[in-house]
Amino acid sequence: MSEGIKDRAGLSDAAAQSRASVLRSRAESYIALSRHDAAIADLTESIALAPDNARAWRLRGESHRVTERHEVALEDFDEALRLEPDSAYALGSRGQTYAAMGRLEEAMDDFDHALTLSPDSLWILEAKADVLTDLDRLDEALEEHAKIIALNEDLPYSWVARGDLYQRMNLYAEAIADYAKALEIDPEHVRALSRRGEALRMSDRYEEALADLNRALDLDPDNDRAFGSRGAVLSELGDNEGALRDLERAIELDQEYIWAYRVRGEIYQELERHEEAVSDFTRALHLEFGD
């Protein structure tokens, strides 16, 4: 189109490209502020003005993904990848979308492709490790976590993530060691404290577990999982009334906390409060199996 000829609601090509660029930039700030609907509106207009910009499609796909509009997110990532086939970011984000939809093998394909392009991308390695875990390929997931830690040993989250996987595998000593590494880096890492407390409980180290869980709750007084774990620890230590108070609080914070209902039901049963035990077990069965 020759210079000066108007198009796209009266804008010249140059003006349309300029407006589209500013809209993309504003959308990125909206995304940083978690204002995804505003970002989507800006990116939709930007795409109408400059439809061949892969970044706009990718950013809009990301906002759709974060707001769980998975089908439209896939459409946007597909278009971004048509325009820019070797975008590790778009491949990784599409992989995350597939994973959220339960399409795990397709997610793995995207993650593997993305990692050939950007082998040191921590967030893609983490996403791949999560999918391997969901596929019950736990040894392979551990290998990915080892790569993540090797790339940067100073990230407490990475140690916690591997600790969680060790705990899932019932490797409590290994989990405790990883949570300890996270806490060396960040002594107030609430999840590391809470999860180490749970691993210590599973290792029958109740006093140590209680210390971790108390600290976690000092730092985060509304941590439902820490209340649930501490309730179980208190029960093991013979303080059933304290345990019931903690489990009641855990359930107040998350009324679909299946494990807390089960543990509280067992305590009620031990106390021969069978009507209350039946109520908690019934609730747990309903939440987990739809009974």
Rank of each mutant, 00 (worst) to 15 (best):
I5W: 12
A9C: 12
L11W: 13
S18K: 05
V22G: 02
R24P: 10
R24G: 14
S25A: 13
R26H: 08
A27R: 02
E28W: 02
Y30C: 06
L33H: 15
L33A: 15
L33E: 13
S34P: 00
H36I: 13
I40M: 12
D42P: 04
S46H: 00
R55H: 08
G61E: 12
G61M: 01
T67K: 10
R69A: 08
H70P: 01
E75S: 12
E79H: 13
A80V: 09
L83K: 01
P85T: 07
D86C: 13
G95N: 08
A99T: 06
G102P: 11
A107E: 03
F111A: 09
F111K: 06
L117Y: 04
L117S: 02
S118L: 11
S121I: 02
W123K: 11
E126M: 14
V131N: 06
L132T: 11
D134E: 15
D136E: 15
R137I: 05
L138C: 04
D139S: 15
A150F: 03
A150M: 13
E153C: 05
E153W: 06
E153P: 11
D154M: 12
L155S: 10
L155V: 14
L155G: 09
P156C: 00
P156Q: 05
S158E: 02
V160L: 06
V160M: 09
V160K: 06
R162F: 03
M169D: 03
I176P: 01
A177W: 03
D178C: 13
L183G: 10
I185Q: 03
V190Y: 02
R195M: 10
E198K: 11
R201K: 12
E207R: 01
E207N: 10
E208V: 01
A209H: 07
L210Y: 07
A216R: 04
L217I: 02
D218T: 12
D218E: 15
L219Q: 00
L219E: 03
P221I: 07
N223Y: 12
V233W: 02
S235V: 04
D239V: 02
E241F: 09
E241L: 05
G242A: 12
L247T: 11
L247V: 08
Q255P: 10
Y257M: 03
I258P: 04
I258N: 03
Y261Q: 01
Y261E: 02
V263Q: 07
E266K: 14
Y268M: 04
Q269L: 06
Q269R: 15
E270C: 09
E270T: 14
L271D: 06
T282H: 14
R283V: 07
L285E: 04
L285N: 10
G290L: 04
D291P: 06
D291Y: 13
